[in-house]
Structure formats: structure tokens, C-alpha cells
């Protein structure tokens, strides 16, 4: 379970202030389990590094050997399910992607993660002949990171539109989209000429237009709908309802007779 931190004062005081805080790493343990030892044995030379992280065997391999390693895992070690394939963008730090395959052995209830590094611009061998689930996972990897899978039967974007530019899960991709993304629907439906008419997206949810009396009104300075206030507006005193300010505690009238 996660460590408990008291949160009753979080609004008064920020409990997280260190900008350079680095999350603690999960401890890496030596492979002691009988079954995991057998797996590392079966793969032999191809494993560059092996350790256990939270009951999960992690195997570092060479990116060119991914097919052979997964084939061995499937045929000799019983890892018949490939539950996830994806990548992590380490381009800025190390100039590489990390590609991982999460494998599951249903008989032994064990999990193995196969990890390899891939330089930018290189392609990886597809594992679709071994696992059908890799079909969509590799398409997603291509869509989100631009990593191509060789010999994939149908390598096409899966989530983003086919004519999309850029790969959104790259760390360099802006969260609110680049120029292409922000005009995508306008360009596609109405054409580029309509950009001026429709205008840019409003990305600030709290934006207020000072002189727009159609959609906004200023407390204490209310005017009627669509009045021109560029010359300033007059202050209107706030009128409270007379019952609003009544003090019920000192009145003579007793409402509840039981008291």
C-alpha cells in the first residue's frame, strides 16, 4: 500500500514542493525463483541483464533478437499470452526508445517483461506471427511513437486519423497540439479559408472578455444585454432582499413553541 501522508491541510500548504524530486525506484532483486531461473537459463546468451521487480522478471535483450526471444518464451517456457507491447520515449536523455513486451504464463501465474532499446529511426521486427494481440499493440506503437514494425500485416494508425501529422506520445509533442492539430477539424471540414472566420481555439477555460456584454456581466456594474461599454459603465448598488438581512435570533416572534 502507498505510504499515508496527512492531507487535511493540503489546501493551506502545498505538501509537494520539490521540483527536482525523483520518484524512488522499485528495488531490483536477484533472480532466486526456480521458474525464473529456468527461463533465464533457456534464453542463455541472449539475456543481457536479468532481475526481479515486484515478482516480475525483467529481461534486457538486444532489439534485433526480440522475435527469437519471444519465440523461446512462448514455446519452451509457456508464456502464451502477450498482454502489452509499447514503448517509452527516452530520446532526450539517451537518444533511444525503450520497447517492452509484457508476457504472462497462465499455468505458473508468472509474468516476464522483455525490454529492449531502439535507436531513433530504426524499425523493430513484428511479433504478430507469434501473438495475435501484437497486431493492434504494434499499430498503436506506430501511431503514438512512430516506431515501425517490420513485416507487420497492416501497419496503419489505429487511434489518430490517417492523415494526422506527428506522433502524440513523444515527449516533444505539445499536449495541446501543434499548429496542424489545432486547425485539424476546421481544415478538414470547411477548408483552410475558414480559419479566419472560426478563429483559434480558446485554450483558457477562465478567459473573460471585458467588453463583451453578451456573454459576461460584471458584478455591481450590470448593464442590459449587448450594450456598448467601451466608454465605461456606471456602478449599480447591489440590492439585497429585505428578508436576507433579517436577524432571526433577536426577533420577538417565536416560531417554534416547543422551546
Amino acid at each position: 500500500m502507498r505510504k499515508y501522508t496527512p492531507k487535511d491541510n493540503v489546501q493551506g500548504k502545498a505538501y509537494y514542493t520539490d521540483r527536482f524530486w525523483v520518484a524512488p525506484r522499485v528495488p531490483r532483486q536477484v533472480v532466486e525463483d526456480e521458474h525464473f531461473k529456468a527461463v533465464v537459463e533457456a534464453l542463455g546468451e541472449r539475456v543481457k541483464e536479468a532481475y526481479v521487480e515486484i515478482n516480475n522478471l525483467v529481461l534486457h535483450i538486444d532489439a534485433t533478437q526480440n522475435y527469437a526471444v519471444l519465440e523461446t518464451l512462448k514455446d519452451t517456457c509457456g508464456y502464451k499470452v502477450c498482454s502489452e507491447i509499447s514503448a517509452v520515449d527516452y530520446l532526450a536523455k539517451e537518444g533511444e526508445f525503450e520497447i517492452f513486451y509484457q508476457m504472462l504464463n497462465l499455468d505458473k501465474a508468472k509474468r516476464v517483461r522483455v525490454v529492449c532499446r531502439l535507436k531513433k529511426g530504426l524499425a523493430i521486427e513484428s511479433v504478430v506471427p507469434l501473438f495475435k494481440s501484437a497486431n493492434f499493440a504494434e499499430r498503436e506503437m506506430y501511431d503514438m511513437f512512430g516506431i515501425k514494425a517490420n513485416n507487420h500485416p497492416f501497419l496503419k494508425r489505429i487511434l489518430m486519423p490517417d492523415d494526422w501529422e506527428g506522433h502524440p506520445l513523444l515527449k516533444t509533442y505539445p499536449l495541446q497540439g501543434d499548429e496542424f492539430a489545432s486547425w485539424y477539424e476546421v481544415d478538414k471540414i470547411f477548408g483552410k479559408a475558414y480559419r479566419d472566420i472560426i478563429g483559434p481555439e480558446n485554450r483558457d477555460p477562465a478567459r473573460i472578455e471585458r467588453y463583451d456584454t453578451k456573454r459576461f456581466s460584471r458584478v455591481g456594474y450590470e448593464v442590459s444585454f449587448d450594450t456598448d461599454i467601451s466608454g465605461g459603465e456606471t456602478k449599480t448598488e447591489i440590492e439585497y432582499s429585505s428578508t436576507f438581512l433579517t436577524d432571526y435570533n433577536t426577533g420577538t416572534k417565536q416560531l417554534d413553541k416547543r422551546k
Partner: peptide, 13 residues
């Protein structure tokens, strides 16, 4: 969804 993939208000369409 203040992101790249969501239309920021259907009145754009």
C-alpha cells in the same frame, strides 16, 4: 480534455 485530440467546443463545427 484540454488536449490535442478534442474539439474545443462543438460550436466550431
Amino acid at each position: 480534455f484540454n488536449t490535442y485530440a478534442t474539439v474545443q467546443g462543438v460550436d466550431r463545427i
